[in-house]
Amino acid sequence: MKQWDCSNHQGITLLSIPGKFLAHILLRRIRDHLLRHKRPEKSRFTPGKSTIDHILALRVIDFEDLLGEPVQSVRARGEDLEVTESFTYLDSVVHNSGLSDQEVTRQIGLKAGVMNSLNKSSWRCRHLCRGTKLRLVKYLIMPVLLYSSETWTLSCALEFRLDAFCNRSWRRIMGYCLQDHVSNLETGIGSVICTICDRQLRLYSHLS
Rank of each mutant, 00 (worst) to 15 (best):
E79S: 14
E41Q: 02
Q10T: 10
V192T: 09
K2H: 05
E64R: 14
T151F: 01
L158A: 06
A57S: 14
G19D: 01
L99I: 05
L27R: 10
E64Y: 04
A157P: 03
L145A: 06
K42C: 12
C125G: 07
Q72P: 00
E64N: 11
R135W: 00
T84E: 10
H127Q: 02
A164S: 15
D101L: 09
E150C: 04
I17S: 08
T151A: 14
H181P: 08
L22M: 09
R199D: 00
I12L: 11
N167V: 07
Y89A: 07
I141N: 00
E79N: 14
Q200W: 04
A23I: 12
R77A: 13
Y89W: 12
L22E: 12
L207E: 03
T105E: 10
E159D: 13
R171F: 04
I25Y: 08
G131F: 02
W170V: 14
F63K: 04
F165I: 00
K42V: 12
H181S: 12
M115V: 14
G109P: 03
G113I: 07
I52K: 03
T195C: 06
F87M: 10
L134C: 12
L34W: 09
D62H: 12
G19I: 01
T51N: 13
H33G: 02
Q107H: 13
T151Q: 00
L134G: 07
D62Q: 13
A76M: 09
T132L: 06
N184I: 14
C129P: 01
A57K: 11
C6V: 13
G131E: 06
E150D: 03
L185H: 15
R36V: 09
N96S: 13
D180V: 07
R39W: 01
C166F: 05
H37E: 11
E103L: 07
V114R: 15
H206D: 06
L22T: 12
W170S: 08
S121K: 10
L34P: 04
S121T: 15
W4P: 05
S122T: 15
N184M: 10
F160Y: 11
R135V: 03
C194R: 13
I61N: 00
A164F: 11
D198S: 10
N116R: 15
D53M: 10
V104M: 05
N96A: 13
V83I: 03
S149L: 01
T153D: 01
P143G: 02
D163I: 08
L154C: 10
K2S: 10
Y147D: 10
Q72D: 05
A57Y: 04
T13S: 00
W152Q: 12
L66M: 04
L66H: 07
R77S: 14
A57I: 07
S169W: 09
I141F: 05
I12K: 08
A23M: 15
T195D: 10
I61Q: 01
G98V: 11
R36I: 06
V71A: 03
L158H: 09
M174Q: 11
I12S: 05
Q10G: 07
R106W: 06
